[in-house]
């Protein structure tokens, strides 16, 4: 009898639909990386804004309104990170010479320390654009990440690649919905200058092979201006001005597997357009530590790493801010 009941139950339960767990993607079953973006010392206003931008960029798997206090040290964040499933820390700090970004895996490390050579806020970028574009569901999904130029075979670059690949949820190309790919984070390593360009773009798809007039008509849902036309058919047949970037489109054209928005239907050709949304950073990798802001220095931009090793062993969580400040001089 008990067996019978069991069978009946099985018939009702859909086996593949699991309860979505907190740290696990309910489609792919992968572990979702979560992040904290916070600052170690008091930041000036523009860096605070950069912190806010970074948090927004890390959405949705980040603490957008993380409140930090002066007395909070790394240990506090680490204690919270465990139960909340936070896997990555992005720490901003500021010394006299320049701001720093540290990217660390919790709880064991490693920690990458980047010097921020230059940065622009999302606001600055929006100001520089004629039509800044922020669709309302832009930050509902995590961004794609594109790493380019890291394949030089050096160990520290390899580690950087792995670190940044794991900071966002992995994409399973078999199950991913294209409409969830709204943003992209680009990390471009320049071999000559040893700088990493950090960019954040929004992805926009535009149907190809249609005149601009019709495209606008379909997109905007607005009554077009037909004053200059003799007949309604002119609106469709008359070729408008071609897109000025028509030449680039050949390379940037994709045929979609699934629908992307309202106008980009599945199995149609669409041009990929990227628009920057910021923040923008130019990073220089200066140090890799084995632990979380502590431990052996695996790689250091300045000097030999053997000296640093001894220093690094003595460093602990609270004093690393000072240790780092002295280092880049």
């Amino acid at each position: 009898m008990a067996r019978f009941r069991n069978k009946k139950k099985v018939a009702f339960v859909k086996p593949t639909k699991k309860q979505p767990q907190q740290n696990v993607d309910h489609v792919t079953g992968d572990k979702i990386p979560r992040s904290f973006v916070f600052s170690r010392l008091k930041l000036p206003g523009s860096l605070k804004q950069l912190q806010a931008d970074l948090r927004k960029m890390m959405l949705p798997y980040t603490a957008l309104n993380l409140k930090e206090k002066k007395r909070n040290n790394l240990k506090d964040f680490l204690n919270v990170a465990g139960p909340m499933g936070v896997t990555h820390f992005l720490m901003l700090s500021k010394t006299g010479s320049s701001p720093y970004l540290r990217v660390a895996r919790t709880p064991q490390g490693p920690t990458l320390t980047f010097k921020i050579q230059e940065y622009s806020l999302a606001v600055d970028i929006a100001n520089s654009q004629l039509r800044p574009r922020v669709p309302k569901d832009l930050f509902k999904n995590s961004p794609l990440i594109v790493l380019s130029g890291f394949g030089t075979g050096e160990q520290h670059l390899k580690l950087t690649t792995i670190m940044f690949q794991n900071i966002f949820p992995a994409i399973d190309i078999n199950t991913v919905k294209l409409s969830s790919c709204q943003r992209i984070v680009l990390l471009n390593y320049n071999k000559d200058t040893k700088l990493i360009d950090f960019r954040h773009y929004s992805i926009r798809l535009q149907p190809v092979g249609v005149s601009r007039r019709i495209r606008k008509f379909v997109q905007n849902h607005q009554v077009p201006d037909l004053r200059s036309l003799q007949d309604v058919s002119d609106f469709v047949t008359k070729a408008g001005y071609g897109s000025e970037s028509e030449g680039d489109e050949e390379a940037a054209t994709v045929s979609l597997a699934t629908d992307f928005g309202r106008v980009n239907k599945a199995s149609t050709k669409s041009a990929v357009k990227l628009q920057e949304i910021g923040p923008r950073m130019t990073l220089q990798l200066i140090k890799i530590e084995e632990g979380l802001c502590s431990g052996t220095v695996i790689y250091s931009e300045y000097g030999n790493s053997d000296e640093k090793k001894e220093e690094g062993n003595e460093e602990d969580d609270d004093s690393e801010g000072d240790g780092e400040g002295s280092e880049e001089d």
Binding site: V146, S148, I173, C181, L186, A252, S255, V272, L274
Partner: peptide, 15 residues
């Protein structure tokens, strides 16, 4: 570069 990456991904997804 970013566009190339996106195109690559989209094509892979499409495939």
């Amino acid at each position: 570069v970013a566009t190339k990456g996106v195109v690559k991904l989209f094509n892979a997804v499409n495939k």
